[in-house]
């Protein structure tokens, strides 16, 4: 297992190096951050001074080497706009996104397994048809529209929930509700398809022949095998959330990593952009390792080594 971890870490280090390099150069293609930092009335001298202060006057290769040196010591330099180390806002924002992503995916996965399994047990039945329509609508509804409509209905018209912000459980309802509609729709379809395959497998027929109850057939015999593709899709969706649920974070005022990245890109706050992308990339790497272990745990035929080969 240690060898596996070591190999994956080395592979990921190469990928991360490529990523930070691409991000470094792409960020600089967006233009000069000094233009946005200083007012239009600022003199050429002031622009030159700020450029020198943050090292933007140096040749790009020199900036790149300095940046790589800083990354190794987790020093991404100062945020030009916030006047503090760039890693600080990133480390404040990432846990917010992580929590939102984990809660949303947990609820989405649990609901998808329940709905998908029941729908698959009687394919083309009433429940299956209703579930298909509802989940397809959920998967294709634009989240920015749903978010605004939800705020106007539940918060302004009914006064039941806070419009936005962070706090107790009530503050989670709308963001999580909006955020989970798409993964819930996608996952339900995956679970249904996966269960249909599992329920037609010989071991399920054997279980039924032995007189096992419907609940036992679904949730004991079929569930474990049906979960493998679900984990793959859920992992992809979770990786997307870790990069930031930008729309939901922006509309509901959640101070997450997606919101931070977008505002930093707009401001051309290079140091924050680079730090945020590296932190999320590392998080995705860690999550992939965990998925590998989950695979091995669920399917004894798959060892950790095989899972990734």
């Amino acid at each position: 297992m240690l060898k596996f971890l070591l190999r994956r870490t080395l592979q990921s280090a190469v990928a991360l190096l490529a990523l930070v390099t691409v991000v470094f150069f792409l960020a600089r293609l967006t233009g000069d951050p000094v233009d946005l930092f200083l007012p239009l009335e600022a003199t050429e001298e002031a622009r030159a001074r700020v450029a020198a202060q943050y090292g933007f006057d140096q040749p790009i290769p020199v900036q790149y080497v300095r940046y790589l040196g800083g990354v190794l010591s987790l020093d991404f330099g100062p945020s030009i706009f916030q006047g503090r180390p760039a890693i600080d806002p990133v480390l404040e924002a990432f846990p917010v996104t992580l929590m939102l992503a984990l809660v949303t995916m947990s609820i989405a996965a649990a609901l998808a397994i329940l709905v998908g399994a029941v729908a698959a047990y009687r394919p083309d039945g009433v429940f299956d048809r209703i579930a298909s329509v509802v989940t397809l609508i959920g998967a294709s509804t634009p989240d920015f529209w749903l978010a605004i409509v939800a705020i106007l209905f539940f918060s302004v018209s009914l006064g039941l929930l806070p419009t936005s912000g962070t706090g107790g459980i009530a503050f989670w309802v709308l963001p999580v509700g909006v955020l989970l509609t798409r993964p819930l729709g996608v996952l339900t379809q995956v679970v249904r398809s996966s269960f249909l395959n599992a329920l037609s497998a010989p071991y399920v027929r054997t279980a039924r022949a032995k007189g096992a109850s419907t609940r036992r057939v679904i949730f004991v015999h079929a569930l474990r095998n049906a979960l493998l593709p679900v984990i793959t899709v859920a992992g992809d969706l979770l990786a997307g959330f870790l990069n930031g649920a930008v729309v939901v974070e922006t509309i509901f005022g959640w101070p997450g990593i997606g919101h931070l990245m977008i505002s930093s890109i707009r401001q051309r706050d290079f140091a924050v952009v680079q730090a945020a992308i590296l932190v999320t990339a590392v998080a995705v790497f860690v999550m992939n390792i965990l998925i590998d272990f989950a695979y091995a745990r669920l399917d004894p035929r798959v060892s950790v080594r095989q899972a990734k080969q």
């Binding site: 605004i148 705020i151 106007l152 918060s155 302004v156 006064g159 806070p162 419009t163 936005s164 912000g165 922006t250 509309i251 509901f252 005022g253 919101h259």
Partner: peptide, 18 residues
């Protein structure tokens, strides 16, 4: 002071008494 980028949300916060 809180901040919401979306104008509709800011307006909704006042309408909802927040």
């Amino acid at each position: 002071y809180v901040w919401r980028q979306d104008s509709a949300v800011r307006a909704a916060m006042v309408a909802a008494g927040e």
